[in-house]
Design a protein around this nucleic acid. Structure first.
Length: 172
DNA sequence: AAGAAGATTCGCT
DNA sequence: GCGAATCTTCTTA
């Protein structure tokens, strides 16, 4: 859920990827804490935002206790409320393309560095998590776009959802 | 101080 | 399907 001055955006998360503590060399938190990854070490439920390819922000939710570097990348979501605003930000009216992919999702929600490190579980946060409809069937696959740790099955998605990203082959 | 790589997306063929 | 765009971060190739 994203609440701005104008209006509210609500989206239902349909695809995520996990990045494990300590042993996952594909994780931004691998090795040691740095300027970029420091919010990955916040207690579970906080935002870790990073910029990829100098062009797209990506939103993660931290997933472990304080001082442990781990997070879940939010890769795709189903648009529920605020579709007009998301369409304007994304430059498309195609519902399936508004939130499909981590860069697109962040753009549609207006996410940037101002959200890095915020508490996503606080009722007062302009960006926050809420309970919603649980997927009927959850599929899993390897993670997308990595050059390391390519065999770990840590991507999870709602089976059959048209709002999920990735190649068809991974979405069975 | 400089260079390489990157949890992506878009447009063109 | 493939390559470019674009810039921050980390490493020192």
């Amino acid at each position: 859920m994203r609440e701005g001055a104008r209006r509210r955006i609500t989206a239902r998360i349909v695809e995520t990827e996990a990045y494990l503590p300590e042993i996952d060399s594909a994780s931004h938190a691998y090795g040691r804490m740095t300027a970029r990854n420091r919010s990955m070490f916040l207690r579970r439920g906080h935002a870790y935002v990073y910029l990829i390819y100098g062009a797209y922000y990506c939103l993660n939710v931290t997933s472990e206790s304080a001082d442990v570097g781990a997070a879940v990348l939010v890769r795709a979501a189903e648009p529920l409320e605020g579709i007009q605003l998301m369409s304007r930000r994304r430059g498309t009216v195609r519902l399936n393309d508004l939130l499909r992919g981590p860069g697109r999702l962040a753009a549609a929600l207006g996410i940037d560095w101002r959200q890095d490190g915020i508490d996503l579980c606080s009722p007062g946060s302009a960006l926050r998590l809420a309970t919603g409809t649980v997927p009927k069937s959850i599929g899993k696959s390897v993670r997308i776009g990595l050059s390391r740790e390519v065999d770990r099955v840590l991507r999870f998605y709602e089976r059959g959802s048209p709002f999920v990203s990735g190649p068809r082959k991974l979405n069975r």
